[in-house]
């Protein structure tokens, strides 16, 4: 138990250091944008007849940091705001907090990412076992090659091809937006059907884009386990194929759970391309649009949230590994 706590605190410290680096980076970048948008807003407000005090407060509320004062004051004020959960106000959607916008965008990212990743994980792991066992056969070879090729193709190419095939050339599924606007949102049949219809292609793209990685990882993991002594011992004892398969799969899948947790964190960043292609209003599209609209508070906030997702995924991956691998667990208890 003690070691687990020590491990966790180490991870937390590193995660916090990382979040600090990213916030500092956003601060430096936003302060260095040509034209200095923060100062510009402040001066615009003064020209409109506000007192310097009022203008300063209003600008600070908008961007999350002060337009005047020394850089150090601005920096500490910015960090202080973040510590109180204040990400600033959005410029492109006036009157809305950045945190609210991010919260409403997150659900459009999380569900398709989860669906696509789990789908490709199950498919890739199953086929990966097969590709490893039959690795000198034709089918095993074909599976491995399909894995390397899909793994090598960038997400946006897969996404664009999926849209070109299933939406343009052979229009069977919609490719724009998360839902048809004519349905009233809520728990009713047509609305949910439309949601699922619109989610199919993005989920398919996530699945195709990560399937190759899974099949390759599982194949190499199974190949390592196959060389272990206990497999040969089991074979010599004449164990049935079913039991043998369970022996192999249970041991080979362990490292993949860690990758699964990590890739969920990374996929939030990867959602940028897929959401842009499908015009899906998730976190990735929010980031791209905030840059297009020069909405820097929103940009910094989204970047921060994407980083936090990765830090959390890292910690989760490490803890998960300790929980599911008896060797690590026993080692920690001893």
């Amino acid at each position: 138990m003690k070691t687990v706590v020590r491990r966790l605190s180490g991870h937390l410290a590193r995660g916090l250091a990382m979040i600090w680096v990213v916030t500092t980076l956003s601060f430096v970048i936003i302060r260095n944008i040509p034209g200095d948008p923060v100062r510009g807003q402040y001066e615009k407000l003064i020209e409109q007849g506000m007192s310097p005090d009022q203008a300063e407060r209003s600008t600070a509320a908008l961007y999350g940091f002060l337009p005047t004062g020394s850089l150090w004051d601005q920096y500490t004020d910015y960090l202080n705001g973040l510590l109180h959960g204040d990400l600033g106000q959005s410029l492109s959607t006036p009157g809305t907090g950045v945190a609210t916008l991010i919260g409403s965008a997150a659900k459009w990212t999380i569900l398709p990412v989860l669906g696509g990743t789990l789908l490709s994980f199950l498919l890739g792991v199953t086929l990966g076992v097969y590709a490893a066992i039959k690795r000198s056969g034709k089918l095993g070879d074909a599976l491995a090659i399909s894995g390397s090729l899909l793994h090598g193709i960038p997400q946006y190419v897969i996404g664009l091809l999926v849209v070109a095939v299933f939406s343009t050339l052979w229009p069977i599924l919609p490719a724009g937006g998360p839902v048809d606007i004519e349905f009233t949102p809520g728990f009713n049949g047509p609305y949910i059907a439309s949601l699922i219809q619109h989610a199919t292609l993005p989920v398919l793209t996530y699945a195709l884009a990560s399937y190759g990685g899974w099949i390759l990882a599982m194949k190499s993991s199974v190949a390592t386990v196959l060389g272990d002594d206990f497999i040969m011992a089991a074979e010599l004892r004449g164990m049935s194929r079913g039991i043998l398969f369970r022996y192999i799969a249970r041991n080979a899948i362990l490292p993949l759970f860690t990758i699964l947790a990590l890739s969920l964190g990374l996929l939030f960043g990867g959602a940028i391309f897929i959401e842009s292609i499908f015009n899906y209003p998730g976190l990735g599209l929010l980031l791209v649009n905030s840059i297009g609209a020069r909405d820097y508070a929103l940009m910094g906030g989204t970047f921060l949230v994407l980083t936090v997702a990765i830090v959390v995924a890292n910690i989760a991956a490490d803890l998960l590994y300790a929980v599911i691998d008896p060797r690590v667990r026993k080692g920690a208890e001893a």
Partner: peptide, 11 residues
């Protein structure tokens, strides 16, 4: 660990 693509976008 710093997400590369979002960082590029911000940069």
């Amino acid at each position: 660990t710093i997400p590369g693509l979002p960082l590029l976008l911000v940069l």
